[in-house]
């Protein structure tokens, strides 16, 4: 193992790790927004919205995220969408993650006992009041753990933007493998940083999950 080389290039990996983190954070935020809207659509009173929500989930979960990214980044200009690689990465991955989060959020909401909504409605709460006072606070607690799984997958999925040349961890590893012919060392560097990010995130999710549980 070429430790000397690893020490020499590791600052570049560290820098790239910050790009991966930034990508993950922005993607997660966009994913949560899309997931919330998607779940609201799937649970709507209106059949049209339910259909659109189901179509969103089916199409974005039914095709590779890489292709979705390519359509947005390379195909976008043909339909008037001009994005730089980083923007395309965040938007593409965010919409993709949103499709998975839609199912997570919806699953947590429909897992709440029907009697909870009934009890709220018999007190005179409206549909929406029952949802945000009674259903969502309970569903939110159920969501933390599965959303953590979504987040874990999303962090790893940010590697895809290497294919559109965003200089994050995987792209950096690929470039240094190409120039140094040391795949194991470069994998070790990038892999370690990914695992640290994933580990810390996982601990954060576990902490949050403990905090929000009802005593």
């Amino acid at each position: 193992m070429d430790l000397e080389l690893m020490l020499k290039v590791y600052p570049f990996f560290l820098q790239a790790a910050w790009v991966t983190i930034l990508l993950s954070v922005l993607t997660a935020l966009l994913g949560l927004i899309c997931g919330t809207l998607g779940a609201a659509a799937r649970l709507s009173r209106f059949a049209v919205l339910r259909f659109l929500g189901a179509a969103y989930v089916s199409v974005f979960r039914g095709t590779p995220a890489l292709i979705q990214l390519f359509i947005l980044y390379f195909g976008g200009p043909q339909v008037g969408i001009q994005l730089d690689a980083f923007q395309a990465g965040v938007i593409g991955l965010g919409i993709n993650a949103g499709a998975y989060m839609t199912e997570t959020i919806r699953g947590a909401i429909i897992a709440i006992d029907k009697g909870q909504r009934e009890a709220a409605r018999t007190l005179g709460l409206s549909r929406w009041q029952a949802t945000y006072k009674v259903i969502l606070p309970q569903a939110a607690r159920l969501m933390v753990r599965p959303l953590g799984v979504n987040l874990n997958m999303l962090i790893k999925a940010t590697a895809l933007v290497a294919a559109i040349s965003v200089v994050e961890l995987t792209y950096t590893a690929q470039r240094y493998i190409g120039s140094t012919y040391k795949p194991f060392e470069m994998f070790l560097l990038a892999g370690l940083l990914y695992m640290i990010i994933i580990y810390v995130t996982g601990r954060g999710v576990a902490w949050l999950d403990r905090r929000v549980q009802i005593t």
């Binding site: 009697g115 018999t122 309970q138």
Partner: peptide, 20 residues
């Protein structure tokens, strides 16, 4: 119906208390 329900109290078999 929300106004009507405010005037009628209901107690369920399984309580349906809000656990949070």
């Amino acid at each position: 119906i929300n106004a009507m329900r405010q005037q009628v109290g209901m107690v369920f078999q399984h309580f349906n208390l809000f656990p949070h």
